[in-house]
Design a protein around this nucleic acid. Structure first.
Lengths: 142, 142
DNA sequence: TATTGTTATACTCTATAACTATA
DNA sequence: TATAGTTATAGAGTATAACAATA
């Protein structure tokens, strides 16, 4: 957790300095960079924990002109979020430094074999956590 | 990063439910649980990134009666933070569930060998990041 | 001069609950 | 009834800069 926190912190700083975005916003942008458009729910599943949290972030990104929101033709309830050219520009502007930071802080410390193992282990952990039933983990509340 | 975020989130929920503390406060308490007392700088080094951030957290913990702050006999500039009996109680109340959550979400998904490797790898990453010179990672600011 | 710590301030983010609208 | 999304609100946390005091 300490390593992850340290890495997160450095990544955050690079994203803020290079593109004036947070890491959450970066993840939303990267998702849209690949798919071009997505519903709020699709974005929320991969990124944030509360829907309102994503509404806030989407609002920030829209205010910055990096995405637009519009109705979905398929489902009248849904909102389609689309990345703008400006949003794509920001990704291009931010990505090289992002790769550089992660390389310098993470990859540089590890052999190819380490990296393979780490990826394998953490993928398993991720899947395991995602599978967990949402039973409350609180023993007794004071 | 996704695994770490998921784990962090679950740990946070358990700590909040069982002891009404955040994970940052938990880390401060755990440090003091072991050493009994520490200066603000000592605590900040291991936990938080800004000194004012720790001042805030120490204030929260003091308000909750879990720590006290007083002058240091050795260095008139320093503040000595001491864990109270109530603080120790909170650690005792929170720890079993904390261990349970980390076991269920992390350890359960991994073999002993995985765990050994993960610990080894992440310790190296941590040391590597801590060694980094603080040169700015921002390429060009828009 | 450097270090320790606090304060004031401003901002970002997050979650909860209530609400609207469509499936 | 369930799902998609927003809003209002409130609280927690963080960082920056200015400051006071001691080393």
């Amino acid at each position: 957790m300490e390593s992850a926190t340290l890495l997160q912190h450095h990544v955050e700083q690079q994203l803020r300095a290079a593109g004036d975005i947070s890491s959450v916003q970066f993840e939303v942008l990267m998702h849209l960079f690949k798919t071009r458009r997505a519903t709020m729910t699709e974005l929320a599943d991969g990124v944030v924990y509360s829907r309102s949290g994503l509404t806030y972030q989407a609002g920030q990104l829209e205010k910055a002109g990096l995405v637009t929101r519009g109705p979905s033709p398929d489902d009248e309830r849904a909102t389609l979020v689309t990345i703008t050219d400006a949003g794509i520009d920001v990704v291009h502007r931010v990505l090289p430094g992002h790769v550089q930071v992660t390389r310098r802080l993470l990859y540089e410390a590890l052999s190819d074999e380490d990296l393979r193992r780490l990826g394998d282990i953490m993928a398993r952990v991720r899947d395991h956590i995602r599978e967990q039933p949402p039973r409350s983990a609180a023993p007794r509340k004071r």
